[in-house]
Simulated scan of single mutants.
Amino acid sequence: MKTDGQVAVLTGAGSGIGRALALALARRGCHLALADIKAASLAETAAEAALLGVRVSQHALDVAERTAVAALPAAVLDTHGQVDLLINNAGVALGGLFEQIAEADFDWLMEINFHGLVRMTRAFLPLLRDSPSAASRIVNISSIYGIVAPPGQSAYSAAKFAVRGFSNALRHELQGSKIGVTVVHPGGVATAIARSARLPTGVPDGEIRERLARVERLLRMPPARAAEIIVRGIEGGRDRVIVGADARVAALLERLFPVHYWRVLGRLVPH
């Protein structure tokens, strides 16, 4: 699909891949409805994007809040008049093994990383159908952990596998319509997600933080580079975008050894 002159709704726009996506789209002339739970960082992204000459609206939003998500389409239409592209990027992380994680924390992550994405899709699907453009698209940001599932990532992988399955099923349901669905699997992108991960209580803090620090050292790709790969995938109408050589290797190993891939990857990935 073309992005010039279109309107994109983007969650998690305040930092990381979300901010980089906003700027990559703005450079292409795409108008933006930006959403994030952190108003200050959202305002920074919006200001940078506006300098590139596109129309930008800001929407303080917690995707876990049903009422807020349901009200967002009307607010976006009020400013932009249409929606052509929805990018579900908002996400959080949770450190610790499954037995260490409280049920409430597991549910917290699922509400944001999966259920929030689903309710955003439900809210904006009618607007994407009504888009005046010849093609519109839903882009769901999963993760390489939606293809492989390392220890210590039970909640995160559960959500990202769910995003992958939801996206693939929705694509099949929308086949023949003008709405495409892209699922994105980034590898090690240099964002703050590991540093900002929620940690379980009752577990030595240093133990989990050291594990997260080892993982963070693998997050090397600049967000701007990841965003360019994703936006090119959107423009090319791709159904799946794998971001980074590390993600491509992991996906290949999972395809070759769908049960035992971790025997190889476990030697390469700190956990």
Rank of each mutant, 00 (worst) to 15 (best):
G180F: 01
F161N: 09
S157C: 06
G202E: 04
G165E: 00
D205S: 15
R164K: 14
T182H: 05
S167Q: 04
G202I: 02
D239A: 15
G206M: 10
R214A: 04
G152V: 08
H172P: 04
E210C: 04
N168F: 09
A194H: 13
D205Q: 14
L199D: 01
L219R: 11
T191C: 05
E216N: 13
P223K: 04
G237W: 07
S154W: 06
G236S: 08
I193H: 03
T182N: 06
Q153I: 15
F166P: 08
T191D: 02
I208N: 01
G244V: 10
T201C: 15
R171N: 05
F161Q: 07
H185V: 01
L218Q: 11
L174K: 03
I208G: 05
D246Y: 07
P186T: 11
A192Q: 13
E235T: 08
V203R: 04
R220Y: 09
H172R: 12
R240V: 12
V231N: 07
E210R: 14
V231A: 09
S167F: 02
V241L: 00
I242T: 12
P222Y: 09
T182Q: 08
L219P: 05
I229V: 13
V163S: 09
A169N: 11
S177G: 14
P204S: 03
R217T: 03
P204I: 08
V243I: 08
N168K: 11
G176V: 02
A158S: 13
L219H: 15
R225M: 11
V181M: 02
